[in-house]
Amino acid sequence: MRRELIKFALFAAVALAVPATIKGGYLLNVLVFVGINTMLAVALNLLLGFAGQISLGQAAFYGLGAYLSGILTTTYGWNPWTAMAVAAMAVGLLAFVIGFPILKLKGHYLAMATLGFGIIIYIVLNEYVDVTGGPSGFSGVPGLGIGNLHFDSDLKSYYLVWTMALLVMLLAVNLTQSRIGRALRAIHDSEVAARVLGVNARLLKVQVFTCSAVISCLAGSLYAHTVTFISPSTFGFHFSVELLTMVIIGGLGSIYGSCLGAALLTLLPEFLRTFQDYDIVVYGLLLIVMTMFLPGGLVQGFEMLWAGIRRLWPGRAGQDA
C-alpha cells in the first residue's frame, strides 16, 4: 500500500508540474480534456478492469452530469457547486436503481443493455428540446469559481480538472488495494467462487457501477463548466466506444494505464491530423493492431520493455566485470 501511495505521489507531482514545462497555448487546452477523459476512463476501468463488467453506456452518465449541471445553473440559477453535487447524487441514485437489473446480465447481453440505456438517454437529451435545447445544444453555462477565483483560463482549468482527476485516481488506487478491490477481482475471475467465499457479488457490482456513474457524472459537470456549451452529439454511442478504447489501450485494471489511454486517444488526433482524411483509417488500424499484439494495453507493453531492459542490464554489468 505504501508503495502504491509513493507511486501516486510521484505521478501527482508530475501531473501538477506539467504546465510549468509547456508554453501554454493549445497543448494546455488539450491537456484539460485529457484530465476529464482520465476521470471517465478510470471510472470505466473500475467497472471493466476490476469487476469485469462491460459498459457501452458510460457516455450517458457523462451527458447527464453535463446537462444537469448546465440546466440547474443556467435555467434555474443554482450555484454550480451545489448543482454539481445534486447532479452527482441524482445520477448515483439512478445508477443504483438500474444497476440491479442491468448487472444481472452478462457478456454481450450486458453490453447490449448498457448500450440501450446510453441510446435512451441520448434520445432524451436530443428530443426534450424545451429543457435541453435539443440537437442545437445548450449554451451559456457559467464557469466555475471559488470566491474571487474564476477558472476562466486554460491554466486555471487545468489545475481544477487535474485536482479532481487526481482525487479520483487516488480513490481508485485506494479502492483496488482494499478488501473491496480484492473482492472485485475475485468476481472478475469467477463470480461463483467469490460468492462461495462470502462476497455479496451482486451488491458489490452495483456499488461499483454506481461509483463509476458518479465519477462520470462529475466529469460531465466539469466539461459543461469548462466548455460552457453542451450538445447531445458529444455524449453519443461513439464516445462510449472511445472510452472503452482508452481503457483497453491503456491496460485493463491499471489506473495509470487509463490515464495513459485517455492521454493517447485525446492527443492522437493531433498527430493524425497530418494524415488528413486518412486519420479514421489509421485509428481503426491502431485499434486492431493494439488488440492483436498488445492485448494487455500500453502498460503491459511498458512492463515488458522495462523487464527487457532490466534483463539486459545485469548481463552488460557482468561483461564489464
Binding site: L48, I54, H108, A111, V241, L244, T245, I248, L252, Y278, I280, V281, Y283, G284, L285, L286, L287, I288, T291, M292, P295
Partner: peptide
C-alpha cells in the same frame, strides 16, 4: 472483450 474491440476497430477501418 478483445473480440468486441477488434470488431469495433474493424468496423471503423472498413467505414474509413
Amino acid at each position: 472483450l478483445g473480440l468486441v474491440i477488434i470488431t469495433i476497430g474493424g468496423s471503423i477501418l472498413v467505414r474509413g
